[in-house]
Design a protein around this nucleic acid. Structure first.
Lengths: 357, 357
DNA sequence: TATCAACACGAAAACGTTTTCGCTAAATAT
DNA sequence: ATATTTAGCGAAAACGTTTTCGTGTTGATA
C-alpha cells in the first residue's frame, strides 16, 4: 500500500526545497528547465496530486457546494441534483448532500454541520416543518456569516438570497386553460394544505384561470389533502378520499392535481368507479416524473424542468462565489428595500399525453 | 456580516494564547476554572465552531464519504443514497456524491477528484461502460492508496473490497417460482444484455427456477433488450420490441422482467394487445419502486431493499474507517486467496400486488 | 531556607499547500 | 574593475486546529 505522496516527500527525495517542488509543478519559470523536468518526472511517476484539504485551508474555499433538500427518493429533487451536479462538475466543484427529511431540526443540524468550513455555499429547498413554523433564523444566520444561499422551488420572501422557482401560478393557469380548451366545464382541483407555498400558488392559478374562462369556482370541487403524514404510506386514505370526492361530485369532467401522485391516484380511482379517461374525465398533473410518463393512460403534465432549475441554481451560486469581491447586500432606494439578489423563474411547459383528449 | 470567528481571534481578544483557548473549549482541566468560564462564555457569544477543514487537515480524516453512482434520477439509487445518508449522519459523517452517468471516464475523473483528500472512503456502484470495458484499474489504484471502497449492487469479483449485493439469483428464482405456483406454464423473461452482472444473475436464476420446476426453457421466450442507448428516450423502441415478442409468442402466460420499466411496459403492451392482467398474463418485476406501486394494475415485484443496502454499505465503510489500525489485506491460506473483505447479501422479498393472481 | 510538586499557561510543531521575500552566484552593463 | 541585473533556489509565513513539552509562579514540605 503506497500512501499518497506529498510535496515534502518529493522535496526530500530530490534534495530540493518544498517551494521549489511546488513551483516546478506549477510550471513556474523561476525554476530551471532541468530541475523542473526532474521534479515533474518524479511527481508523475508517483502520481502526485495536491491534497484538496490543504488547498482548501490555504485558499479558504473548498470548491464544494452543499445541497440541502427535504427528500431524495423523489423524482423532482433528484432531477434538480442532477442539474446541480452537472454544472458543479463542469465548473470544478463538488457536491455534498444533506437531507432534512422535512424536519426543522435536521435542517438546522445539517446546515451547522456543513457551514463550518466544509462548503462554500448552499443550494436548498425548505422543509415542510420549517415552512410551517416560519422560523428562518438559520438561513439568515448562515447568510450573515458570509455564506451565500440559493433557494429553489420552496422559497420564502423573508430570506434575502438568490432564488430559482418554477412559475407555479402560471403553470396552473396553463393547465386549467388546457382543460377548458379540451371542453371541460367542471374542473376539480386536488391540492395540498396551503402552507407549502407551491401548493398555494398552484391553487391560486387554478382559481385565476377559472375566472379568466368565466367559470364559476365551486368550493366543493377543491379537495385539500393533508400530507403532513407521509402520504406514501397512506395511499389508501388518499384513494378513499378521492373516491368520496368523485362520488359526491359526479359532474366533474376535468381534474387538475398539484402533483403526480394525486393525478395518478385520481385516474386509478376514476377508473375503478367505471369512468374512463380521457373520455369521461380528463386529468392533468404537475411535475413531470416517471409516474406520468409510464402510467396507463400516460399523464398530461405541467413539466417543472427540474434539471434546468438545478443548473440555474448552481450557476447562480458559483457566479456569486467567484465574484467574491463585491458585497451583495441590500440597500434602500426611495424607501424601497432593493437587493442585488436574483430571482430566476423557470417557465413551465405542458406535456400532452393520453389523459387529455 | 460577521465572518466566522477563529481560535486566534478569541485568543487575541481575551489576551490569552491560542492553546489556552483550545484547551478551555475542550474542557481541559489544565486551565483554571475562571479562565475556562471566560473563554467559553466568549466563544458562545460569538458562536464559535471549529473549522472543519483545519480539523480534517490535522487529523488526516475528513469524516466524509464519497458516493459514486451511475445515475441519480433513479428510484433504486436514490433509495440507496438515503440509506447511506441516514447512517452517515448518525455516525457523524457527511456524504458527497458524484455521478458517473454510466461513463467510464467520468467515473475516473470523479474518483480522482475525490480521492485527493476530500473523502475518507468510497461507496460506489460501477458504471455500465466500465463493466463493458472490464477495466478496473482505478478502483484498484484507489484501494492501493489506502482508501477503502465498498461496492454495492453492481460489483465485480476482480476488485478486492467490501461488497453489498442483493441476491439477484435467488430473487429471480423466487419470482419464477411464484409465477409457476400461480399456474403459469410459459414464462417469458425480459432482460438486459449480459454484461451488467445483475442482469446476468437474474437470467441465470430464471433458468434455474425453470429447471427446478421441470419446465423446458424456451430460448424464444427470452427477450434481451439493448439498453446501451438511454432507454428513457427509447420507450417506443422498447414497446414495439415487446409487442413483437408477445405477438410471436402468444402462448406466454407469465412474464418476469429484470426491472420495473420493462415490467410496466410489458403490462402496457399486453393490454394494448387485448390481453388482461393478471387473467391472461401475470407479471413480476424486479426492483420495487414508485412505478410498481402506482401502476394500474399495481405490479408484483421483487424488492431489493435499497435503503437497507445503503445502510449496510455505510456501516461497513465506517467500521473499516474507524478500525484504521489493522491492515485489511488479502493473504494466502492453503493456496487459496483469502481476504478479510466482507460480502453482505441482502435477501430479496416478493411483494404481491395486482399483476399476479 | 532550599527543594519540590502542583498549577496555569504559552511556545511551537504538525497537517500540506502556495506565495512572498531574500539570498547567492553568475552574467551583464558601466 | 566595479556596479547592477538576473537566474535559480530556499526560508518562512499563512490557513485553523490540537497536542506535546516547557516554563514560571505558588504553596507546601523537608
Amino acid at each position: 500500500m503506497k500512501k499518497k505522496i506529498t510535496l515534502k516527500q518529493i522535496a526530500r527525495e530530490l534534495d530540493v526545497s518544498i517551494s521549489t517542488v511546488s513551483k516546478a509543478l506549477s510550471g513556474s519559470k523561476e525554476i530551471s528547465e532541468e530541475t523542473t523536468q526532474k521534479i515533474q518526472a518524479f511527481a508523475n511517476l508517483y502520481n502526485y496530486k495536491p491534497n484538496n484539504i490543504a488547498l482548501s485551508l490555504k485558499n479558504r474555499k473548498t470548491k464544494t457546494i452543499g445541497i440541502l433538500i427535504p427528500e431524495i427518493v423523489h423524482h423532482f429533487f433528484s432531477t434538480v441534483i442532477r442539474g446541480i451536479e452537472l454544472i458543479a462538475n463542469r465548473r470544478g466543484y463538488n457536491v455534498i448532500v444533506g437531507l432534512s427529511n422535512e424536519s426543522f431540526s435536521k435542517e438546522i443540524i445539517n446546515m451547522e454541520m456543513l457551514a463550518n468550513g466544509s462548503i462554500d455555499g448552499f443550494i436548498l429547498s425548505i422543509s415542510k416543518e420549517t415552512l410551517l413554523k416560519q422560523d428562518y433564523h438559520h438561513f439568515k444566520a448562515t447568510i450573515n456569516q458570509g455564506m451565500p444561499i440559493v433557494m429553489f422551488d420552496r422559497v420564502v420572501n423573508e430570506v434575502n438570497c438568490d432564488k430559482v422557482i418554477v412559475d407555479d401560478f402560471n403553470g396552473a393557469v396553463k393547465a386549467v386553460n388546457k382543460l377548458v380548451e379540451k371542453g371541460c366545464k367542471n374542473i376539480a382541483l386536488i391540492t395540498t394544505m396551503d402552507y407549502v407555498s407551491v401548493g398555494r400558488l398552484r391553487t391560486e392559478g387554478y382559481l385565476e384561470a377559472l375566472e379568466n374562462n368565466k367559470l364559476e369556482p365551486q368550493s366543493n370541487l377543491i379537495l385539500k389533502i393533508d400530507d403532513s403524514l407521509d402520504v406514501e404510506n397512506h395511499l389508501e386514505i388518499l384513494e378513499t378520499e378521492i373516491a368520496q370526492f368523485f362520488k359526491a361530485n359526479s359532474h366533474i369532467d376535468g381534474v387538475f392535481a398539484v402533483n403526480e401522485l394525486y393525478a395518478v391516484s385520481a385516474m386509478k380511482v376514476a377508473r375503478k368507479l367505471g369512468l374512463s379517461i380521457p373520455e369521461d374525465i380528463q386529468v392533468i398533473g404537475f411535475t413531470d416524473g416517471v409516474l406520468s410518463k409510464h402510467a396507463t393512460p400516460s399523464l398530461t403534465t405541467v413539466s417543472q424542468h427540474g434539471q434546468k432549475m438545478g443548473e440555474q441554481a448552481a450557476n447562480l451560486l458559483i457566479d456569486r462565489l467567484e465574484a467574491d469581491n463585491t458585497e451583495y447586500d441590500q440597500y434602500i432606494v426611495n424607501n424601497d428595500v432593493k437587493s442585488d439578489y436574483i430571482k430566476v423563474v423557470i417557465e413551465t411547459e405542458i406535456i400532452e399525453r393520453e389523459s387529455t383528449k
